[in-house]
Design a binder for these strands. Structure first.
Length: 282
DNA sequence: ATGTCAGATGTGATCTGA
């Protein structure tokens, strides 16, 4: 979101256009009461139940659902604070699936306390998911590009947060619980990004990173019929610097809803020596 | 061009975080 308050004119039309059953939001940057005051009524009118977990200024996550919203848990048990507990995770059971909306700490620089905090936070998240139900999804801004293919130019990010080996190992350990990276599995060779820096025309040039993931356990991943990044939502006036990831699931394991065609993406520009703005990622 | 935003402090420009 990069502020749900600033993004309201984009969020509500997007909900009406895509009509998702379950929505995981990150970086709402709003306390729970302010969240309810700002958009509770608009969401209720659209049939959404809401689990919001926020702070007055930073962070903040939420789950919107019209597929049920049960057993809401805020935060990650056993996770460290920085120094206080931050609003970076909320979980709920929606239509039989344990859904986690997560905003993984940024990490800032690899030698920082914030980076160590990020790794410890991921380890705690892994424990929560490990002890949870088999049908599970982890969705959100993980602030890690899983592989070099998830960065427009790996050389431009070398040694920076989001691409280091320990971060990728922490993410891999989470995935070793049996979680599928459903967008990468659907688009194994394609150029797919979810985040583009606001500066320097990065979106226009499609110089981005794939740091927003939908991870799904086996029984859920088997129901995936479409998985794609809604780049359209990054265009136009007043977008977030991230684009939403959309995943369609069948209702039944052997169901068939026919072919689903994602919208066309922009042609990939040539890889080159592009100077990277010094404040990476959101 | 370190080229953008958003939130805050506290009124206007500067800081923090991404």
């Amino acid at each position: 979101m990069n502020s749900v308050k600033q993004r309201l004119p984009r969020l509500l039309p997007w909900l009406d256009q895509r009509r998702p059953d379950v929505v995981c939001l990150q970086e709402t940057k709003l306390a729970d009461q302010a969240f309810a005051d700002l958009l509770g009524e608009e969401l209720a009118r659209r049939g959404y139940e809401v689990a919001a977990h926020g702070e007055p200024r930073w962070n903040g996550v939420a789950i919107l659902s019209r597929a049920g919203l049960d057993d809401v848990v805020t935060g990650v048990a056993g996770a460290p604070g920085f120094p206080h507990q931050e609003a970076r995770a909320v979980a709920a059971t929606c239509g039989g699936v344990r859904v986690h909306s997560v905003y993984v700490p940024n990490g800032r620089t690899p030698d920082s306390d914030h980076y160590r905090y990020k790794l410890e936070w991921l380890a705690a998240l892994r424990e929560v998911v490990r002890l949870g139900p088999e049908e599970a999804m982890v969705c959100g801004d993980v602030n890690i590009a899983p592989a070099d293919a998830d960065v427009f130019d790996p050389a431009a990010y070398e040694g920076q947060t989001h691409v280091t080996a320990p971060e990728r190992a922490a993410l891999a350990e989470l995935r070793e619980l049996g979680l599928h990276d459903v967008v990468r599995e659907r688009w194994p060779e394609e150029r797919v990004f979810t985040y583009w820096d606001y500066r320097a025309g990065m979106f226009h040039k499609d110089l981005g990173m794939r740091i927003d993931l939908v991870l799904a356990s086996d029984p859920v991943a088997g129901r995936v019929r479409a998985a794609w990044v809604d780049r359209h939502a990054r265009k136009g006036t007043g977008p977030s610097d991230h684009a939403p990831v959309i995943v369609d699931l069948d209702e039944a394991p052997d169901g068939d809803i026919g072919p689903v065609v994602p919208p066309p993406s922009a042609p990939a520009p040539k890889r080159g020596s592009v100077k990277l703005p010094q404040a990476p990622s959101g």
